[in-house]
Design a protein around this nucleic acid. Structure first.
Length: 290
DNA sequence: CAGACGTGGGG
DNA sequence: TCCCCAAGTCT
């Protein structure tokens, strides 16, 4: 099957329907793109917009962030979730400043050495910030390809080798077109080919979609693992960290643990926050890291 | 490699 | 209301 017409249709659709996101503007720096990618790991666009603007205003270059205490990054991260990402972004800024002259590296190996940068983020930065040709396989693209090409409602839990190869088939050969396809296919997944209620009637490639042709069969693969949350250590960590974020002064142990009803679990959570570097102990009190 | 890791909004 | 899901990475 020739992928070119489908790719062209998605590119044309993107021209008309792309969101005007600040990190997509022509004047967005590689750093601006990288910050957005960290924030967008598992966090919806709408919630990222505000913190991203504040972050870029405060730390317009990696060196600015590198010069700040890690705790400032954690506090500025606010409620985006998975605060270890803030720590990793801070550490990445330090490495970029110390080892890359303050510039976000434009090669894959160097990017992958940065904390918090995995296969997806590396490809995204190279594609979006530097216009390079890379397969950018995020959850949106994986879902689009799963439906369009495989006729299946959802992709497997983790990317496979076959998926990578399939994605490569769709990737235009030219650099610019490849980079364009990367954003466009992601955008289609985010706006039209969504997980819950796909808008197939407004999809530019519905006529070429295997899933559509098959009558949009329901997911019959292994049950998709839900993430329980209430009562978990994760929730507890979140509660404790929220206390630290909201306080300028160091917080006493009693006060810190008071927000959680299970003392043993709270102790364990606090220990893990300290181990992760998300909290510091100064005397008998606790703060965000310095 | 399965599980840990936050948080909030929409169906 | 409750459940699912959101531009993943790390161990």
């Amino acid at each position: 099957m020739n992928r070119a017409p489908l790719v062209a249709a998605v590119l044309a659709w993107y021209e008309e329907n792309a969101r005007d996101l600040p990190w997509r503007r022509a004047d967005a720096s590689p750093w601006a793109v990288m910050v957005s990618e960290f924030m967008l790991q598992q966090t919806p666009v709408d919630r990222v917009l505000g913190p991203w603007r504040d972050w870029m205003e405060r730390w317009p270059q990696p060196a600015a962030l590198a010069a700040a205490p890690a705790g400032d990054a954690v506090r500025a991260w606010g409620r985006l979730g998975y605060p270890r990402r803030a720590l990793r972004l801070h550490q990445a800024a330090v490495t970029i400043t110390d080892e890359h002259g303050g510039r976000v590296p434009d090669d894959r190996a160097a990017l992958l050495r940065l904390p918090g940068v995995g296969p997806y983020t590396a490809a995204a930065v190279l594609s979006f910030a530097f216009g390079q040709r890379h397969v950018v396989l995020d959850t949106n693209v994986r879902r689009v390809l799963s439906r369009v090409a495989a006729g299946v409602a959802y992709p497997s839990p983790t990317p496979t080798r076959a998926e990578e190869a399939l994605a490569e088939e769709f990737l235009p050969s030219g650099q610019a077109a490849a980079a364009r396809w990367a954003v466009a296919s992601m955008e289609l997944g985010a706006l039209v080919c969504t997980a819950r209620s796909p808008r197939c009637s407004s999809c530019p490639v519905s006529s070429a979609c295997a899933w559509q042709s098959a009558g949009k069969p329901a997911w019959d693969g292994p049950p998709r693992r839900g993430q329980s949350y209430t009562g978990t250590d994760r929730q507890c960590r979140g509660v404790l960290l929220a206390v630290l974020r909201s306080s300028d002064a160091p917080v006493g142990r009693e006060e810190l643990l008071a927000g959680w009803s299970e003392p043993a679990q709270a102790e364990r959570a606090l220990a893990s926050l300290l181990a992760d570097g998300l909290a510091d102990q100064v005397g008998g009190r606790f703060t965000l890291p310095h």
